[in-house]
C-alpha cells in the first residue's frame, strides 16, 4: 500500500476512533443511552400517568392510529419521568422535541426511556413514523410548571 494511502487510513481511523470513544463514553459515564431490551413490562392496553413521588412520574404512552393516550401531561419542574411506549395498532414513533428522547412504539413490544424536565415550559412530542393518513396530526404536550 502506498505511503500516503497509509497516512490517510490512519488519519481516518483516528477521527472515527475519537467519535466512537466520545459516544460510548457519554453512554457509560453520563448515562445518555439508546433504548434497550426490557422483559419485565408486558405490552399494555391503555395509557396512564402514575405519580410515584413528588418529583417522579411513570407514564404509559399508548400510541394508536392517530392519537397518543395520554396526549397531555402536567408535571412540576425538576421531576423525572419514566416513559413506557407501545402501540395498539401499527408502528408509531414517540419523539419529544428538543429533549433527544426518540422511541419507536411497536405493537407487541414495550420501549422505555427516562428523562428529567428541569426547565418549565411546554415540550411537544410527535409521532415520527408513518402510521396512515392521520399521521401528521398525531402529537401531544408535556407541560412542565
Amino acid at each position: 500500500m502506498d505511503r500516503y494511502e497509509n497516512i490517510a487510513i490512519r488519519a481516518a481511523l483516528m477521527l472515527i476512533g475519537v467519535f466512537f470513544i466520545a459516544v460510548i463514553g457519554l453512554a457509560i459515564l453520563k448515562g445518555i443511552d439508546v433504548p434497550t431490551c426490557i422483559t419485565d413490562f408486558p405490552p399494555f392496553k391503555e395509557g396512564k400517568v402514575i405519580k410515584l413521588s413528588d418529583k417522579e412520574y411513570q407514564v404509559q404512552i399508548l400510541a394508536r392510529m392517530w392519537r397518543f393516550e395520554p396526549n397531555r401531561i402536567e408535571i412540576p419542574a425538576g421531576s423525572k419521568v419514566i416513559i413506557y411506549t407501545t402501540s395498539a395498532d401499527v408502528q408509531h414513533g414517540f419523539e419529544i422535541e428538543g429533549k433527544a428522547v426518540n422511541l419507536m412504539a411497536i405493537p407487541g413490544a414495550v420501549n422505555k426511556a427516562e428523562v428529567v424536565f428541569n426547565k418549565p415550559g411546554t415540550y411537544r412530542f410527535v409521532c415520527n413514523e408513518f402510521c396512515g393518513i392521520g399521521h401528521q396530526a398525531m402529537y401531544g404536550e408535556i407541560i412542565v410548571k
Partner: peptide, 9 residues
C-alpha cells in the same frame, strides 16, 4: 434501529 424496543443496547 437504535430507537427500537426489544434489542439490547
Amino acid at each position: 434501529q437504535y430507537s427500537d424496543p426489544g434489542i439490547t443496547n
